[in-house]
């Protein structure tokens, strides 16, 4: 699958799973098949509401074979930045929204002899795509889901299609009753552990596993990656006097290109060095792998394809 740009999808189905959980199914707007998703993948969902544009990452809960539909589960949280509230209250069946191509920063390890999956609450979502993939591979796994007592039936129902004959455990009695260290200690060599959920749970899994001598490469936590955007800023091009506004969801390189300025570039990922520009004034937040530590500290250069200004304005020798 070679993709370009966002994918328009129609809300095919909305299912209320609990007072705060809804499952959304997306179907491709123009028919055909969606990109093959991977176990553990997420999509960026673009939400437009009252003049605001939000991009939220949600794990796909549908299995990798499902290219007619993608499914996500969203919890309505009280302190929502707006995304979950919008999805819960304003999105209806038949609405059209945009999603990105699935990305995966939480993939299954191909060489694991056993997979230990530990989730808290809605952190179950990536594991819902793991389980059918693991079963299809004939891989050995053990799943622990921590949740509140009143939500236990919801997660039991979600896992039920996969549960027969498997080591799937739902813990509705809180963290105190969950013997994390004991579970980690009794795993066979070659096991990989994956965790997703509240930060405190993920930290506990990582610290306990490390304390028990698990190699770092066998401990995995859910991540949607670093945000590519940041605060908006202004770039002043000293040679031409042109001023370019860089929006929060745009790179400096993209902003230059949007103005019709032919800026040098090649890899667009902070590795090749082609787009390097000299900085005359302003402070840079470096996000590239090209400049040396000394060059970064000097604040004399910027890689516009990934890096941003830390100050409201940056002046470039360009």
């Amino acid at each position: 699958m070679i993709a370009s740009g966002p994918i328009p999808v129609r809300i095919h189905e909305i299912e209320q799973l609990s007072p705060t959980l809804k499952r959304f199914a997306f179907a491709p707007l123009h028919g055909g098949a969606l990109p093959t998703p991977s176990a553990g993948a997420h999509v960026l969902v673009t939400l437009r509401h009252e003049g605001r544009v939000m991009k939220n990452a949600y794990s796909l809960v549908s299995p990798p074979e499902s290219r007619e539909r993608y499914e996500i589960i969203v919890r309505h949280v009280a302190q929502s930045r707006g995304g979950s509230r919008f999805l819960h209250q304003s999105v209806a069946r038949g609405d059209v929204i945009e999603i990105g191509v699935p990305g995966n920063l939480f993939p299954l390890a191909s060489k694991a002899r056993k997979h230990l999956l530990i989730a808290g609450g809605i952190g179950i979502t990536p594991l819902l795509s793991y389980v059918p993939a693991l079963k299809a591979r004939g891989a050995r796994f053990e799943l622990h889901q921590l949740c509140t007592a009143d939500e236990a039936p919801v997660f039991e129902k979600l896992l039920a299609p996969h549960a027969a004959g498997e080591d799937i455990f739902i813990h509705g009695n809180g963290r105190a009753a969950f013997d994390l260290a004991g579970i980690l200690a009794r795993q066979p060599l070659g096991t990989h552990v994956y965790t997703c959920g509240p930060r405190a749970l993920m930290d506990a899994v990582i610290t306990s596993a490390a304390a028990l001598g698990w190699p770092a490469g066998k401990i995995h936590r859910e991540s949607f990656g670093d945000a590519s955007g940041g605060l908006p800023f202004k770039a002043v091009l000293a040679k031409s006097g042109i001023e370019v506004q860089v929006a929060d969801n745009q790179t400096l390189l993209e902003a230059l290109e949007a103005q019709g300025i032919a800026a040098p570039c090649l890899c667009r990922g902070g590795a090749c060095g082609e787009c390097k520009l000299e900085v005359l004034d302003g402070e840079v937040e470096h996000r590239d792998d090209f400049l040396s530590a000394a060059e970064k500290a000097s604040q004399k250069f910027i890689m516009p394809c990934v890096s941003r200004a830390r100050t409201a304005q940056v002046v470039l020798d360009f």
């Binding site: 699958m1 990109p35 993948a41 191509v101 699935p102 890899c267 090749c272």
Partner: peptide
Amino acid sequence: KYLLRLQYG
């Protein structure tokens, strides 16, 4: 480093 971040699609 660049390739470790290579994106699907």
